[in-house]
Simulated assay, not measured.
Amino acid sequence: MFGSSRSGANAYAKVGLETGVIAASPHKLIVMLFEGALTAINNGMTHMKAGQFEDKGRAITKAILIVDEGMRASLDKKAGGEIAVNLDALYGYIIQCLLRANLRNDQAQLEEAHKLLSDLKSAWDAIGDKVGPGAQAAAAPRPMAAFDSLTPRASSFVSA
């Protein structure tokens, strides 16, 4: 009648996440994307080692979506100039690493993607305290449609 306690906990967690997103600064939103992608890659590594290939695929797909539809899509190449163009290329490379890792069960490709994202997150964290309100507004991600990683969507990625 009322659902399981697990669904209640999931609803509570979702509300907490949505509240965190609404209250977050543009800088914090990017940090949250980094954290989500890194967590998904870690989950993919764990599932790959355990031979849980369906779960591995879901975790890596989640990481790809975060990098592509979250981080990469939020780049403003006009305002960001060469830095944004270079980040776009790097995000593209990370997505390719994740695709190869998923298709070939290649742990090294997952580790490569994780290291690159970790390094970027460290740099992003380092500038966090130095970014003022005006600079944060300029660096703000463009608004995008609601993102639900569990909703199936058309993709240009090849599935194996």
Rank of each mutant, 00 (worst) to 15 (best):
Leu90Tyr: 04
Leu120Glu: 00
Asp125Trp: 01
Leu17Ala: 10
Arg72Glu: 01
Arg153Tyr: 06
Phe157Arg: 15
Ser7Asp: 14
Ser155Lys: 11
Arg6Gln: 14
Gly36Ile: 07
Ile60Asn: 05
Ala113Asn: 01
Ala24Tyr: 07
Ala139Cys: 14
Ala113Gly: 02
Ala13Arg: 09
Leu90Gly: 04
Ser149Arg: 13
Phe2Gly: 15
Leu87Ala: 04
Asn86Pro: 06
Asp88Met: 01
Asp68Arg: 10
Thr151Ile: 13
Gly36Gln: 05
Arg104Asp: 04
Glu54Ile: 12
Met45Gly: 10
Ala108Cys: 10
Lys78Ile: 11
Ala13Tyr: 01
Ala160Gln: 12
Glu82Pro: 02
Lys130Met: 09
Ser5Met: 14
Val21Arg: 12
Thr61Asp: 12
Leu65Ser: 15
His27Thr: 04
Lys62Thr: 11
Lys115Ala: 09
Met45Ile: 09
Gly3Cys: 06
Asp119Tyr: 05
Val15Cys: 02
Arg100Ala: 12
Ala9Asn: 11
Gly51Lys: 10
Leu75Trp: 02
Gln136Asn: 05
Ile94Asp: 04
Ala113Tyr: 06
Thr19Ala: 13
Tyr91Ala: 00
Ala154Lys: 12
Ile83Cys: 06
Ala160Gly: 15
Tyr12Cys: 11
Ser149Met: 14
Ser149His: 13
Glu111Asn: 08
Val131Lys: 05
Ala140Tyr: 04
Lys121Asp: 02
Pro133Cys: 00
Ala135Trp: 02
Val15Lys: 15
Phe34Leu: 05
Ala154Leu: 13
Asn10Ala: 12
Ala50Val: 03
Asp119Lys: 03
Asn86Phe: 05
Ser155Phe: 08
Ser156Asn: 15
Gly16Asn: 15
Ala23Met: 09
Glu54Gln: 10
Met1Gly: 14
Lys121Phe: 04
Glu69Asn: 08
Gly81Ala: 00
Pro26Gln: 02
Thr39Glu: 12
Leu29Thr: 00
Ser4Tyr: 03
Gln109Lys: 13
Ile127His: 03
Ser122Leu: 10
Leu87Asp: 09
Thr61Trp: 04
Tyr91Gln: 03
Asn102Gly: 10
Ala23Cys: 08
Gly128Trp: 05
Arg72Gly: 06
Leu87Lys: 11
Arg153Leu: 08
Lys115Tyr: 00
His47Met: 03
Ser4Gln: 06
Thr39Asn: 11
Ala140Leu: 09
Ala146Ile: 11
Val21Gly: 08
Lys121Trp: 03
Lys62Asn: 12
Phe147Asn: 00
Gly8Lys: 08
Ala24Glu: 07
Leu33Ile: 01
Ala79Cys: 07
Tyr93Lys: 11
Tyr91Cys: 01
Gly134Ala: 01
Val67Ser: 01
Thr46His: 02
Glu54Arg: 09
Lys130Leu: 08
Cys97Ala: 12
Asn42Met: 01
Asn102Arg: 12
Ala59Phe: 09
Ala137His: 07
Ile127Asn: 02
Ala138Met: 15
Pro141Leu: 07
Gly134Trp: 00
Thr19Ser: 09
Leu29Val: 00
Ala146Thr: 06
Ala101Tyr: 04
Gly8Asp: 07
Lys14Tyr: 10
Gly36His: 00
Leu103Pro: 02
Leu117His: 00
Asn102Pro: 08
Gly20Phe: 11
Asn43Met: 11
Leu120His: 03
Leu99Arg: 12
Gly36Asn: 06
Glu111Gly: 05
Glu111Trp: 00
Ser149Thr: 14
Thr61Lys: 02
Ile41Cys: 03
Lys77Val: 06
Ile22Cys: 05
